[in-house]
Amino acid sequence: MKRGIYAGSFDPATRGHFDVIRRASLIVDELHIMIGVNPKKSGGLFTIGERLNLIEESLQEMEWFGCPRSAFHIGQFTGLLVDYCRAHDIRFNVRGLRAVQDFNYEFEMHGTNCEMAPEVNTVFFIAPPEFQFVSSSTIKELATYRSPAVQKYVTRCVARALLEATRTS
């Protein structure tokens, strides 16, 4: 069985994230969608629990996945990604690239990960043009100003949660 991981903060999860998940699901049998928790960092717009719920609900909205729900494992982890991969026999680390800046960061991480866990292969997906300039920060700003454009970049459940969260902040 080919297992992969797609890890991030997903604060919030965007359609760009789900595009990576969809494409990764075409090359692995089981995909772990994991929120990396850094105990030294705090904050975020959504709690870890809210992010996990939004990912779960968004997967239900996304009819174009064509995979059984059992092919996706949603959760969180603390520590090194390579340690999580070893503990779960994961061989593919899936990463999305929007621009050159993403590539530079991911390339540096790839070098370190290769030294620590050569058995884990990094797979890069280049974002389609409609998602190349969209970040979670941009999405949060659009939601703060109540821009209808937010609907284009997130699922319905994430859009509702964003509007609610930014209404009270």
Rank of each mutant, 00 (worst) to 15 (best):
G79K: 13
G8W: 01
A149E: 11
A13R: 00
D89G: 10
T144S: 13
M34I: 03
T138V: 15
L52A: 10
E164F: 06
D83G: 07
R22P: 02
G75Q: 09
L163P: 00
F133R: 13
L59C: 06
E130D: 08
R22V: 01
E164R: 13
V94G: 04
A127G: 09
L31Q: 04
A127E: 05
A13N: 02
H88G: 01
V123E: 09
W64F: 14
T155L: 05
L26P: 00
T122D: 06
H32A: 08
P128N: 08
R3I: 00
R167W: 09
G96E: 01
A143E: 06
R15T: 01
S135R: 03
K152L: 10
E56I: 09
R95T: 04
Y153G: 00
I126H: 09
S135C: 03
P68I: 06
K140L: 05
S25D: 08
N53L: 15
Q132Y: 05
I74Q: 06
A161F: 10
A71K: 14
I27R: 10
D83A: 12
S137Y: 02
M109R: 04
L54V: 01
I35L: 12
S137D: 12
V158F: 11
H32F: 14
T14D: 03
M116E: 12
F18L: 02
R3Y: 04
I55Q: 03
C114R: 15
E130F: 10
T155H: 03
N121H: 15
E63W: 08
A117M: 11
L162V: 07
E141R: 12
R146A: 14
F124Q: 05
R51P: 02
